[in-house]
Design a protein around this nucleic acid. Structure first.
Lengths: 399, 399
DNA sequence: GCAATATGTTTGATGGTCGAACTTAAGACG
DNA sequence: CGTCTTAAGTTCGACCATCAAACATATTGC
C-alpha cells in the first residue's frame, strides 16, 4: 500500500513520552514480537529483531514471563551453542468474546495464542433484549467458570448493528432493537474490565486481518464481506479495521445492485442484501435457512437448478456491488465471510473474473477474492481478540 | 468515531524504543503542539499541555528554535507574571509542492505555518511527459530561486493518476500517460530529498484534513470529492487520508449513477464522471470549461436554463453516487472540491437532503456536506504539506 | 517600593537502556 | 573423553533524557 500523503501528527502521538513509557513500549514490542513470530523466538532472537540489546530484552522478557503474558517452552535442539528458551504467547491469559446473533448467543474464551479455550453456544427463544442479554451473561459466566485459573483480561461483544462509543447498540434491524445498552448490561459480568462493543462485521474482519492476536494475516488490505441475514462490510487497510463514524463501517448490504430490483426494508430498491442475504438465498435455492451455507454449493454441483440459479445470482450481485466498493476505496482484495465463505471455488473464480472486468485498476493490481478462514463464530473470536488487544498494546498494565 | 475493534499491534510500533527516540518523539510532540495551537503557546503552555516539566520543554524548544523549526515571537501582555515568549511554526522552513494538471503545471513553496511563500503556474502546450516534466522542474527551480534563504525540507508532487510506492505514475487517463517516472524526473531538482508523489485527490483531501501543517481541520472523518476533468475521491478517517493499494484511493468518478446512462471511456456506463466532470458540465451548461466553476451558479441564479439543468444534474448524480459511498464506508460527512467547491449553497443543501433520504444511518448521524476550503491549487498545497510532514514527524533530523 | 504571580533556568536525582565482559550449555572434532 | 567453538543468557558500570525542586527573572497590582 502506498503511504497516504503525510501522516498528520495531531493524533495520540502528540503526548509527551517519559521513561516509563519507554519501558511500556518496549514491553509491547516484545509481546508483539512473540505473537507475530511463526516459530517461538528466544530472548536473543527478539533482541536482534527489535534491535535492542540482549540485556534489555532478557530483563523485560523476564517480567513478561513472571506475569504469564508469555510462556517459556522447550525448543528442540537446533544447532550448537547454548540452547535457547523459546517463548510463546501465554496460554494463561484469555479474553471472553461474546456475540449476539438473530437466534442465538455465543460465548468463547480465547487465549493469547489464539486458541479457543472454552466455547459455548445457546439458542435464544425470544428476541427480547433483556432475555437475550440475560442468556448472553449466563453463557459468559459458564465460560468463565470453566477457565481453571486462567486470567481474564477483557470482554468483547460483537453485535449486529450500529454502536456508540460507550457501548450502546443504537439500532439492530434484524433484532428489532433500538438503543440497548449492551455494555451496561454486561458490566456486572465484566467487573472492572471495560466491555468492548463493536459491530460483528468489524469483529469478523478483525479475525481475518489478525488470525491470532498480534499475528498478521496473509492480506493486510482488503474488503471483508460478512454475510448473514444482513450483509455487512468492513474495510481493512494496513492490517487495521477502518470503522466508520458509528462503527458500522459498511452498510454494504444496501449498496444498489439494480435500481429496478426488489424493494428493501431500508426504503431503497435492489439492495445487495436482497440478492445475497440468507433470506434471499433460502428463497431462491429452496433450502432451509440453516442449510444454505453448507448445501448450496454441493446441491448445485449435483444439478439442482434452483441452487445453480442462486449461485449465479450471488455471482452477479456480488460482482456488481463489490466493483463499486473496490473502485471507491481502491482496495482490490476481497474476503467473503459468513455463509458466503462456503461458496464453491468456481463461484469465487467467476466473481473474481467479473470484478476484474468492472474494476478500473485491475490491469495494475488484479482483484483477488478468497473465502474467510474464520469459523462460523468468527465475530465472537474477533470480539475476544479485540479485548486481548489491550494486553498487546499495554502489557505494562498486567506485569 | 468509534474505535476499530482493537488495534493490531504488528505495525511500525513493534520496534524497540531507545532513549534517543524518546527525545525525538518529544521534539515531535512539541512541534505538533506549536502547529496545532490556535494562538502561539509559550514553553510553559506546551509543558502543561503535554504534561512534561517546564525544564524539558524549555530545553527541547531551545533546540527547535536554534534549528528555526519554531520561531519565537513577541506576545502581547496577557496578565501578570513574567511575560511569555510565544512560539510559532518556523517560517524559514518550507517545502516545495508541485502539481501536474491536464493543461498546466503548478509549483509553490509553503512554510510550516501553512503560508504560501512563492506561487507559480505555467500553462503547458503539449502533453508530452518529457516537456511537461521539464516545465515542472523549471517552475520548481524558479520557486526555489525566490526563497531568500529559507530552508527547503522536501518536495511533493500531486499527479492525476495511479502511483507506485517509488513515485512512478502508472497511468493518468486524462494526460494519456503510462508508466512515467515522475519521482526520477524530479530527483535532480530535489537533490537529497525524497520526492513524494501521490494522487492529486489524496493531496487535496489532505489539505482539507489539515489546513495548515499539523493543524487539524474542523472535520476529521469525511469523504473528499476532487472534481476536475476526472473525478476522484479520498477517504479521511481520524484525520488521516486512507490511500488505497495504489494510491488511487477512490476512483469515485467511475461509481455507477445509472447503468443505462452514457458510455464512459472506462468501459462502463453511467459513471459519475459523465455527469459532474468538467467536460460533461461544460457541455450541459453551455459554458467554457474554464468558466464552469465560477459561472454555473451565478448564471443559474440569473435564470440561465442550461446552467439550472446542469446544477440539477450535479445534484442528482452526486446524491446517488455519494449515497453508495457513504453507505459503504460509513462516513457521513462529505467535502466537495475542485469545481464542485463553488456550487451555490442551495445546491449543497439539496445534495445533503437527498443524501439524507438515501443513507441508512442518517437518522443517527445526519449527512453533512460542505465545500472545500482550499484554493484551486489545493493539490499543490497538499503536496507541500505532505513533504513538510517529515519535519513534523521527525524534527530531530533537522536540529 | 514591595508583594504576588508566572515564565524560564539551573541543579542533582532517577530510571531505563547500552556496551562489554562474563557465565552457561550445548555441538564439533580429534 | 577432553577441548574448542558457538551462541544464549547474565551481570555491572556508563550514559543520557527526564523529573523534581529550588532559583532567577520579568511583569502587574497595590
Amino acid at each position: 500500500m502506498v503511504d497516504a500523503p503525510g501522516t498528520p501528527w495531531h493524533g495520540p502521538a502528540s503526548v509527551a513520552v517519559r521513561q516509563a513509557n519507554l519501558r511500556e513500549r518496549n514491553l509491547a514490542a516484545l509481546v508483539a514480537g512473540v505473537c507475530r513470530a511463526t516459530s517461538p523466538p528466544s530472548r536473543a532472537d527478539l533482541a536482534t529483531e527489535l534491535s535492542m540489546t540482549r540485556a534489555t530484552a532478557a530483563r523485560l522478557v523476564d517480567e513478561l514471563v513472571a506475569a504469564k503474558v508469555v510462556d517459556e517452552v522447550e525448543r528442540e535442539r537446533t544447532g550448537r551453542g547454548r540452547p535457547a528458551l523459546a517463548l510463546r504467547p501465554g496460554s494463561g491469559i484469555v479474553a471472553v468474546g461474546l456475540a449476539i446473533e438473530t437466534d442465538r448467543v455465543l460465548a468463547r474464551a480465547v487465549d493469547l495464542r489464539g486458541d479457543v479455550v472454552v466455547d459455548r453456544v445457546a439458542p435464544t427463544a425470544s428476541r427480547d433484549p433483556e432475555s437475550v442479554l440475560d442468556a448472553l451473561a449466563r453463557e459468559a459466566r459458564e465460560v468463565r467458570a470453566r477457565l481453571r485459573g486462567r486470567r481474564v483480561v477483557g470482554v468483547g461483544v460483537a453485535v449486529p448493528g450500529i454502536v456508540t462509543d460507550d457501548g450502546r447498540l443504537l439500532r439492530a434491524p434484524n433484532l428489532g432493537w433500538n438503543d440497548v445498552d449492551v455494555a451496561g448490561a454486561l458490566q456486572p459480568f465484566a467487573g472492572r474490565h471495560r466491555v468492548l462493543v463493536a459491530n460483528e462485521a468489524d469483529m469478523a474482519a478483525f479475525v481475518e486481518a489478525e488470525p491470532a492476536p498480534g499475528r498478521p494475516g496473509d492480506w493486510s488490505d482488503f474488503v471483508h464481506v460478512s454475510a448473514a441475514v444482513g450483509v455487512g462490510g468492513s474495510i481493512v487497510t494496513g492490517g487495521r479495521v477502518v470503522a466508520g463514524e458509528h462503527g458500522a463501517a459498511g452498510e454494504l448490504g444496501h449498496v444498489c445492485v439494480d435500481p429496478s430490483g426488489p424493494a428493501c426494508a431500508c426504503g431503497s430498491t435492489g439492495c445487495l442484501e436482497r440478492y445475497v442475504g440468507l433470506e434471499a438465498l433460502a428463497a431462491v435455492s429452496g433450502l432451509d435457512r440453516d442449510d444454505v451455507a453448507a448445501g448450496m454449493g454441493p446441491r448445485a454441483a449435483e444439478g439442482d437448478v434452483r441452487c445453480q440459479v442462486a449461485l449465479e445470482q450471488v455471482t452477479h450481485a456480488l460482482s456488481v456491488a463489490l466493483a463499486s466498493v473496490v473502485n471507491v476505496v481502491g482496495i482490490s482484495s476481497v474476503v467473503l465471510g459468513g455463509h458466503l465463505a462456503t461458496l464453491p471455488p468456481a463461484t469465487l473464480d467467476a466473481i473474481q473474473q467479473r470484478l476484474d472486468a468492472r474494476v478500473l485498476g485491475s490491469r495494475w493490481t488484479p482483484v483477488r477474492v478468497r473465502a474467510a478462514r474464520g469459523d462460523d463464530a468468527a465475530a465472537a473470536t474477533g470480539a475476544a481478540h479485540s479485548a486481548l488487544g489491550d494486553v498487546l498494546a499495554r502489557p505494562a498494565a498486567w506485569v
